[in-house]
Write a protein that binds this DNA or RNA. Sequence first.
DNA 1: TTCCATAGTCATTTTTTTTTGACTAATTGA
DNA 2: TCAATTAGTCAAAAAAAAATGACTATGGAA
Lengths: 101, 101
Amino acid sequence: MEKNKETVGECPAEGLLKQLSGKWKPQIFRLALEGPVRFNGLIRKIEGSNKQSIATALRELEENGLLEKSVIKLKPLHIEYSLSEKGKSLVVVFQQLECFA
Amino acid sequence: MEKNKETVGECPAEGLLKQLSGKWKPQIFRLALEGPVRFNGLIRKIEGSNKQSIATALRELEENGLLEKSVIKLKPLHIEYSLSEKGKSLVVVFQQLECFA
DNA sequence: TTCCATAGTCATTTTTTTTTGACTAATTGA
DNA sequence: TCAATTAGTCAAAAAAAAATGACTATGGAA
């Protein structure tokens, strides 16, 4: 009789889980649910955080298409990160995660 | 005018995200959805994995109450890890994660 | 013009996570 | 009895993630 040598391929949830995991990403994502977020604002709001980590998290969230970066050319001239369409579609999932926590 | 010095407390989703993150946990959890899993079986099925990592992941999943460990005292005498009630309640969340992936 | 805020980068260090390899110990099958 | 399977542990090494401190560069406000 043949041995069953099946190995498991990918786990679809894994990628998404990875995109939201890391020490600061969940908090950043959650703040982004309430509206556009900014670099220095995040550093102030998220206690214990630091520039480098927030910068890395923002870059990765943007690379993964969860956040969109935009330069606001008005008044005080700054940069905003807001939920992309993909990001918005994750809101329900994120809220469910909160419910079951 | 007072400065707004609010910092953000906890993110409820964060803990749950942490419980499911790590290199091997999503795959283990996914296999556990299909039925009880076993230590050596996981090592065989999950390519690239190793004893220590699987042992650690199983221990943490158990500590977090997602899996339940039980000694099966029959036939070949072995240990099984199966979804706990908490684990089962997460199935919907996990499936949603897969849908949006 | 000087100072503060914004939004970062870069190199290095520290901490955490993951991997490797050696070892244990009971059970089971031939 | 010998060998394989099951289910791990332990210490150490390697790799990845996160933190620190110095630095850059622009825009406003006083």
